[in-house]
Amino acid sequence: MKALLLVIAMIVLARDASAQDAQCVRERAAMVETIRTYARSAAGVLGRQGLSERVLEAMAQTLRHLFIPERSCSVAYADQPIPIGLGQTISQPYVVALMTQLAEVAPDHVVLEVGTGSGYQAAILARLAQKVCTIEIIPQLAETAAKTLRDLAYDNASVRLGDGYNGWPECGPFDAIVVTAALGEPPPPLIEQLKVGGRLVMPVGPAYTTQQLTVVEKIAPGKTTTRAVALVRFVPFTRSQN
């Protein structure tokens, strides 16, 4: 009898897991369509090319629900930011796609992310780049993100605990840098570690209000161009107290 009950329990669990997987697939597909809709109305930001299929495919393939505490598909794939604890959030899907597009990541690129959070943005970048180096200042988040990325076999993504203001020189120079926290101006060390022709994408502005999503392009050694592309609202850039 116990063996029969165990088999029945396993069947029920497998059925529930299958139903959840199917829900996640539907919710993720709906998320991608929402992103497409936003992109079509943002021609002034993205230009005539809009969001690339590479970026949309990365969004469609990445299991966002595994990067949030609830692991709920209905929560994960809604177009909204999600708290991940310790005063931090995971950005809404459209903003993740937008920042990724603006970074113009190519398959042979080395990319730096500052502000790992849950690891979701790093996972998106890892699908598009050769190597991703991501820095997180909060130990609990860095540990959890590293484990999630490792468990999901993102072998080309490395997580470092530390203050991202100074970048990660040993991992660079970088073809693209994505910063997922707001600061009054782009950190000079990050621009220094950017290759000529590379792009830095980050929210620039004061904390706890709207900021300008900004693209800094390094056009020559010591020379950059800067353009603001959209209003956003990010958590403040956290610095080490040491």
Score class of each variant (00 low, 15 high):
Lys195Asn: 13
Glu53Leu: 07
Arg227Cys: 07
Ser91Pro: 06
Ala153Lys: 09
Arg15Glu: 09
Ala129Trp: 10
Val215Gly: 03
Glu57Asp: 15
Tyr38Phe: 15
Thr116Cys: 14
Glu53Val: 06
Arg127Thr: 07
Gly44Asp: 05
Met59Val: 09
Ser158Thr: 15
Ala19Gly: 12
Ile219Ser: 13
Pro188Glu: 09
Val55Tyr: 02
Asp21Ala: 14
Thr226Phe: 10
Glu104Gln: 12
Lys218Val: 08
Ala97Pro: 02
Ala43Met: 08
Gly50Trp: 01
Gln211Ser: 02
Leu141Pro: 00
Ile84Met: 01
Val201Phe: 04
Leu200Trp: 03
Asn166Cys: 03
Gly47Cys: 07
Thr34Met: 07
Thr180Trp: 00
Ser74Glu: 13
Val95Ile: 15
Pro139Thr: 13
Thr116Tyr: 09
Val32Gln: 08
Val201Ser: 03
Ala3Phe: 10
Ser74Tyr: 04
Tyr38Asp: 04
Val96Trp: 03
Pro139Trp: 08
Ala39Phe: 02
Ser240Tyr: 11
Thr134Cys: 11
Gln241Leu: 14
Cys73Lys: 11
Val196His: 05
Asn166Leu: 12
Gln23Lys: 14
Tyr165Trp: 15
Val45Ala: 08
Gly162Ser: 04
Ser240Arg: 14
Leu4Gln: 12
Val215Asn: 02
Val201His: 02
Pro236Thr: 01
Pro81Arg: 03
Phe174Cys: 02
Glu53Asn: 12
Pro107His: 07
Lys195His: 05
Gln241Met: 09
Ser118Arg: 10
Glu53Gly: 01
Ala106Ile: 00
Gly85Ala: 04
Ser240Asp: 11
Gly119Arg: 05
Val111Glu: 03
Trp168Gly: 03
Ile68Phe: 09
Glu143Cys: 08
Thr134Trp: 03
Phe237Asn: 08
Ala17Asn: 02
Thr100Gly: 04
Thr210Glu: 13
Ser91Phe: 10
Val95Asn: 06
Gly44Phe: 01
Gly162Thr: 05
Val55Gly: 01
Asp108Ser: 15
Leu51Pro: 08
Glu143Arg: 15
Ala157Pro: 00
Glu170Leu: 12
Tyr208Trp: 13
Thr116Asp: 13
Ala157Tyr: 02
Ile11Cys: 12
Leu102Tyr: 01
Arg15Tyr: 14
Val75Ser: 04
Asp155Ile: 06
Val25His: 08
Tyr120Trp: 09
Ala14Cys: 08
Ala145Asn: 02
Val25Tyr: 10
Asp175Lys: 02
Ala3Ser: 11
Asp21Glu: 15
Ala42Asn: 12
Asp175Tyr: 04
Gln212Asn: 10
Ala182Lys: 04
Ser72Tyr: 04
Ala157Ser: 07
Glu113Gly: 05
Ala106Ser: 10
Lys147Pro: 00
Val132Pro: 09
Val216Trp: 06
Ser91Asn: 04
Met59Tyr: 05
Gly184Pro: 07
Tyr154Phe: 15
Leu5Ala: 12
Leu13Met: 12
Asp79His: 00
Gln211Phe: 04
Ala22Ser: 09
Val45Phe: 01
Val215Arg: 06
Ile90Glu: 05
Gln92His: 13
Thr214Asp: 14
Glu57Met: 01
